[in-house]
Design a protein around this nucleic acid. Structure first.
Length: 233
DNA sequence: AATTCGATCAACCGCCGCCCG
DNA sequence: GCGGGCGGCGGTTGATCGAAT
């Protein structure tokens, strides 16, 4: 790694951690707890910058950490959460006990991104086929008017393809920040109101006047993720 | 057996926000 | 209100390892 850094300038070590360094870090955290990484670095004599200590602890030494063997269930959850949250790895990791943001980020970049791409092209093929089928159908039925309110997309019915998103603009609904901090492992305990803003949120902006409101079970939501499009600011 | 190549993952970087003096 | 220090985050790099040639 050819880049120079503040740590390097201060004469601190970089690169792989040794067993002895790990032990020093472990001992200190056991005694003093997590946090205050710069102080840890100074007091233990570890020639590592605070950030490096924090990273080593969080991604490797933490006792509750799971390493490797990401299960099918975890993988599906990562995909769904990524669809909702984007590259907010720490939030995604927060939903997967024992997994770190770094591990999930690496897993996504090396494995899931490819899968997602493949799925995307598969979906594109299917969508293209559907459009062609619809066009053929429309050509057959010259009486039928195309149902395009704004000339942008066909207006599908709510039951066919609800376009929902979560808003915190209305009292009593789950806020985005609350939702992001929800414990997804306990979904069955939660109910929230999903605001249906059919056809009004294509540009990704929040709506203050939802067209309808319907309580929706979060578990149902995540299990049937493909049915929903979420737009977050 | 030697070399190349791609996948994986630990570690680093810069940026940003928060806190405190 | 301001500035510095610190911690957290996402993006990126580079070492390593195994499979393919």
């Amino acid at each position: 790694m050819g880049r120079s850094s503040r740590c390097e300038k201060d004469g601190l070590r970089r690169g792989s951690w040794t067993d002895a360094e790990d032990q020093i870090l472990l001992d200190y955290v056991r005694e003093h707890g997590e946090g205050r990484w710069e102080k840890l670095s100074r007091e233990t004599g570890l020639k590592r910058c605070g950030k490096s200590c924090r990273l080593r602890w969080l991604n490797y030494l933490r006792p509750d950490i799971k390493r490797g063997n990401i299960t099918q269930e975890e993988e599906e959850l990562i995909i769904r959460l990524h669809k909702l949250l984007g590259n907010r790895w720490s939030l995604i990791a927060g939903r997967l006990p024992g997994r770190t943001d770094n591990e999930i980020k690496n897993y996504w970049n090396s494995i899931l991104r490819k899968k997602a791409k493949e799925n995307q092209s598969e979906r594109s093929r299917n969508e293209r086929k559907t459009i062609e089928d619809l066009a053929t159908e429309a050509a057959k039925n010259t009486e039928a008017e195309p149902d395009c309110h704004d000339g942008f997309l066909p207006n599908t019915s709510d039951s066919d393809m609800p376009r929902n998103f979560i808003t915190d603009l209305n009292e009593g609904q789950l806020s985005i920040s609350e939702f992001l901090h929800t414990d997804f492992t306990k979904l069955c305990e939660l109910n929230t109101k999903i605001v249906d803003c059919t056809n009004n949120c294509r540009n990704g902006s929040l709506m203050s006047t939802p067209t309808t409101e319907a309580p929706l079970h979060l578990e149902e939501l995540l299990n049937d993720w493909e049915a929903y499009d979420f737009y977050l600011p």
